[in-house]
Design a protein around this nucleic acid. Sequence first.
DNA 1: GTAATTGCAAACGGTTTGCGATCTC
DNA 2: GAGATCGCAAACCGTTTGCAATTAC
Lengths: 125, 125
Amino acid sequence: MSRKSEQREIILKTVKSTDIHPDADWIYQQVKKEIPDISLGTVYRNLKLLAGKGNIRQLDIDNGPSHFDGRTDLHHHLKCIKCGRIMDIDYSLKSEDIERIGKENDFSVTEYSFVFYGICSRCIK
Amino acid sequence: MSRKSEQREIILKTVKSTDIHPDADWIYQQVKKEIPDISLGTVYRNLKLLAGKGNIRQLDIDNGPSHFDGRTDLHHHLKCIKCGRIMDIDYSLKSEDIERIGKENDFSVTEYSFVFYGICSRCIK
DNA sequence: GTAATTGCAAACGGTTTGCGATCTC
DNA sequence: GAGATCGCAAACCGTTTGCAATTAC
């Protein structure tokens, strides 16, 4: 199965160490400081593997590159339309609401992902 | 500003005519039936222009190509994780909830987009 | 020793863009 | 006739993949 590699460990540590929801290239730049000859392909391969195992989450908000989230518990996101910053939000629906939404639409809901757009506190000033 | 063109009119009509949330290539194939020598570039250019004007909406759910939505009123989406189908859902939050979420996070919410994942009625059988 | 993982570079898919020709106003 | 739009093709960007060498177990 999945062996251990220094590359993967440092990639995981890097994603977990920040809440800025970085993209692959940012992670690549960070990891390069510790492993100068790591390749971007390795970063992509490991991000995919880690997301598949549930160690990190992949966020696809709008177009552009995917972002990665070290938090894997149920939460959602705010995105500032001015600066592009993505922030965590601890909002969730009541399970009875989820159930009702499923029933009303003849759909079995297993997950949900909310994105709120607007202006963040830094940009509003 | 923006002049009228047959290409743009037919692209708009095509997006409005369906609820399957097609991607650019599907729209291209449809429009080609009416304008055989239209180019894919023209389709992309017009989809972007129409989305910018608010005549259609661009959906970026997961990775992969953008999807386009002829509905521009407030609504959200269900995505079947088996067949990939994207469906409309007429769910919305109470404005007091939106306001509370904004206050709690020091963020001025202007829009929000929800995606529910799960199994659709066709796939559950 | 076997198979997972790597760095490298080429390829991929979706989208954008520069161009000269053609339309719309 | 000015400038928006077109078709075409090349370029772009984020991501994936084939390969031979290396590493973990």
